[in-house]
Amino acid sequence: MKKSLTDHILDCTGRIVIALILAFVLLPFVVVATASLNDSAILSFPPKSISLRWYANVFEYRDFGEGLVNSLKVAAIGAAIAVVAGAGFAYVLDRYDFAFKATLNGILMSSLVIPNFTIGLGLLILSAAAALPRSIWLVVTVHVIIVLPFVVRSVYVSLRNFEKRYEQAAESLGGTPGHVLLTITLPLLMPGLVSGALFAAILSFNEFTASLFVVNQSTQTLPVAMYNYVREYADPTLAAMSVIYVAVVAAALLVVHKIFRLEKVLNVE
């Protein structure tokens, strides 16, 4: 069958539009990656001569190293807390009917609506009022609040899709509810839990706005360290940092993909 001219035009236009959108998605990264190779000390585009010295600078600048360690700590602890708490809430929401179910769901989802700076500011005021030290736990708390809705959603979707016949079969075979949870439900929900934890960790690793309110010099996360750097210097160090940043997150995803098959973890299978 021969395509009509209109079909051809639509087909070509479609391809161009898709190409443009993809180009736009990648554009910021391409610009930053190119700028990071600029030899001169000014953030400019396109670069005049090529150098890797800003990458060296990233590793020499102490705040970045400390920020990275803080960020990894916060992401790991925050994701772990969020996935345990989120899975618990998701399980309750999926399996039980109770009076304030809608309210609970609303509260759990509320941080999607409340801006991150409000959450950061709120916790800042609260910690000041309670005379709490601005420790790393304050940062972790803020991050857990922010990522919890994503974890709850992710696990909730896995639970909704969960074939309850597996549990029934296990029960009929003599498995007590606790035993069935440990040997059947949890192992089969693992992809959902891992995806929840992964999203939580990435969101936390990227979080800036709320963190800015609650960190101090010793607890500042990598994004905050980067922000503080750009306020003082305008050289391409930050561009180099960004490239490393993307590389690290991509590497983490790759590892997860190798272990769990990413499609399954992200529930897009």
């Binding site: 029934q168 079969a169 296990a170 009929s172 075979l173 003599g174 509810p177 059947i184």
Partner: peptide, 20 residues
């Protein structure tokens, strides 16, 4: 009596074999 104490064998339509 809960299902796990009834000593009943079941075969479901989709078999529900534990995939893991």
């Amino acid at each position: 009596v809960p299902p796990h104490k009834r000593e009943i064998g079941i075969v479901f339509q989709n078999y529900a074999l534990f995939p893991h």
